[in-house]
Amino acid sequence: MATTMLKALNKSLHDALDQDEKVILLGEDIGTLGGVFRVTDGLKSKFGEHRVVDTPLAESGIVGSAIGLAYRGYRPVVEIQFDGFTYPAFDQLVSQLAKLHYRSRGRVKMPVTVRIPYGGGIGSPEHHSESPEAYFAHTAGLRVFAPSSVEDAYSMLRQAIACDDPVIFFEPKRRYHEKTTAELLPPAPDASPKAKIVRPGEDVTVVGYGPTTYTLVDAAKAAEDEGTSLEVIDLRTLDPLDIDTVAESVKRTGKLVVVHEASRTSGIGAEICAEITERCFDYLEHAPLRVTGFDIPYPPSRLESHHLPDLDRVMHAVDTVMRHHEATEGAAK
């Protein structure tokens, strides 16, 4: 039976609530309404208002009280309504949640999951289309998950909730209606998510996560028609960053393009390019390239198609690394 990412996330929360009575959901409008995207639809009526909690309108309050609940032995799963409303909770996330295990010398665990629907492309007003993942990947003590597929949405959310560290869980909201017919399987015990080669290829390694993974698969299909073979890697987690998988691929292809919606400077792409340059310097045939959102505030929606990396911009980068490659190959002959 076909299911959507929304339903997969709903089932993941449902199964977590069902299997562990310490799991508790907190957020604005998540109870009676079922969340503005309906991710928590039906959960309050099934599990009750003390498991699925509509909170007052205060993000710092939500994350801060989740920390208190974790002290008390709960396993809170927090919903931030939209990416742009994460910032009022910034202190609680980076100075408290991230550091409590360290500060308590390992005596206090913070198994808190913070779900954030993120990214653009849905024609929204300001603050509803942000990609703030780099702030959290930059913060030691937080794990950052960013699934792209429906199956991963289900299993990685289970993993996030089961994890004894805090996990910032980014949901690619513009892909909420993506479908799959595959069965949703709980993750194997003790397995933690790693980067995945979603489409093998030989000429260029293209790396993305979340919403851009779909763009990369489209790019790989388009490139194939032009005789170029792209290896598409879905990072899945941004912390820890699975550089091994990317490096192994780049050693074969010699070329790397990293793609994300978030802005460019000091972003995830910069980190990957630096790591790969350090590890694969002798294998590289072209400087690693980034295709990203611009270094600007997220623009009004009638400009967002420029801002979001699309097929053309990805192909342009692929052409750039390939052209250089072809030119040097030609010269060698």
């Binding site: 604005e28 409008d29 009676t32 309404l33 503005v36 509509d54 909170t55 007052p56 309108l57």
Partner: peptide
């Protein structure tokens, strides 16, 4: 406040 009645605040 969207679906939340004022008494929740």
């Amino acid at each position: 406040a969207i679906s939340e009645p004022v008494a929740l605040q």
